[in-house]
Simulated assay, not measured.
Amino acid sequence: MKRRWWSTSNVDVGKLPELTSGTAFLPGLMLTAGAVADLVRGEMSLPWLGGAGLLAFVALYVTVAYRAFDPSRRANRIKLGLLAAHAAVTYPLALGYGGNWIQLFIPLALVCGAVLRGQHLVVALTVLGGSAGLISGERDHDPLAAMINGYGTFISGLVTAAILGLAATAAELRRTREELARSAVDRERLRFARDLHDLLGHSMSVIVVKAEAVRRLMERNPAQAAVQASDIETVGRQALTEIREAVSGYRESNLATELDRARSALSTAGVTQDVQLSGPPLDPETEAVLGWVLREAATNIIRHSNATHVEIVMVHSQQQVRLEITDNGTNQPSSRPAGTPDAPGNGLKGLAERLAEAGGSLVAQVGPQGGFQVIAELPKPM
């Protein structure tokens, strides 16, 4: 199916034929119609010389017009040389024959508008417009025709340059908009991948731990094993709900809820907790980010640390809130397979990105007494 030329989908304004191809300048050759008519009527001296000059004029006009829009053939010296040759043909024809031949200055001005920019364009158009007016006044002795030819030459080149400049700006804006759209898609893809990792990593770790508990308790304590199996079902259903919410973009982590989940998962894994949370209530954005930190830290402790105890401490200062999570595990950061400074994984790397976006920072390091420590700091909202 052919795409319509006016479609806004996948169309680069800078590639539209009307604006970036020499074909758009071919109608300018209609301004030679008066000179052609003079040749046909034979109302001029040396018609063969005028015909040869007109053919040269047309050839140079077409060459300059197409070269102006060919990126591989836009050397400045060549363009300026062709423009000079074009002018060298135009002036003798206009001076020698006058009348309709003076209108040849307008096509020359058109290609000047396509090739030149800035001061060079203004100077060239001023010279061409002034020349057209002076030659017309001298040859035809008609002040009105002189003014029309001079002004028409100047404004034709100026309008051409303005239109091409606007087209180039529109093309750049289109490319910028497409790049921003791609960046937005990349950011959203990264956000979703990060959320999915954090959601599934924690939930799967809890399910694995509880499944191990079910296996251990199945023979000696079936009732407790049934409780753990029920927890697995609950965690699985909650994980499905969270994934749906993440896909919809509505889920925000809650620190109190994440703390309850973390304590339950850590207890099931045989990890005792010392929780010390102080200070006033947090704003929703800060609480959401710290909830992600707590979730990821608890997941890493269960999966990698071999820890038996963890301390969770949150303190406030005038400028910031600080969350510290420290375990007594035997694995050091360099030996942990994911989310560590020495072997960065998706978990803590994603958390660092979240905190950076919120103006905070994340530190993952060896704890004061060994083990592993995660420190998250966020500025308090003004």
Rank of each mutant, 00 (worst) to 15 (best):
K2C: 07
T8G: 15
P17V: 06
E18N: 06
T23D: 10
G34H: 09
V36W: 10
A37N: 12
V40A: 06
E43G: 07
W48N: 09
L55V: 15
A56V: 14
L60K: 02
V62F: 07
R67Y: 05
A68W: 05
F69E: 10
R73H: 10
N76I: 06
N76Q: 09
R77P: 00
K79F: 04
L83S: 14
H86E: 14
P92N: 11
A94C: 08
L95Y: 13
Q103M: 07
L104A: 09
G113M: 11
Q119E: 10
L121S: 03
V122C: 05
A132G: 01
A132Y: 02
L134K: 04
A146G: 06
N149R: 12
T153F: 11
S156Y: 08
G157Y: 04
V159Q: 04
A170W: 15
R175G: 01
E179S: 13
S183E: 11
V185D: 12
L190T: 14
R194C: 07
L199Y: 10
M204D: 13
R220F: 01
I232Q: 04
E245F: 07
E245R: 03
V247I: 15
T257M: 14
L259F: 04
T272W: 01
Q276L: 09
A297D: 02
S305F: 03
T308W: 07
H309M: 04
M314G: 08
V315H: 10
V315Q: 13
L323W: 12
T326V: 12
D342Y: 06
A343C: 03
P344L: 03
G345D: 00
L351F: 04
L355K: 06
E357P: 02
G359E: 07
G359W: 07
A364P: 08
Q369V: 09
I375P: 09
P379G: 15
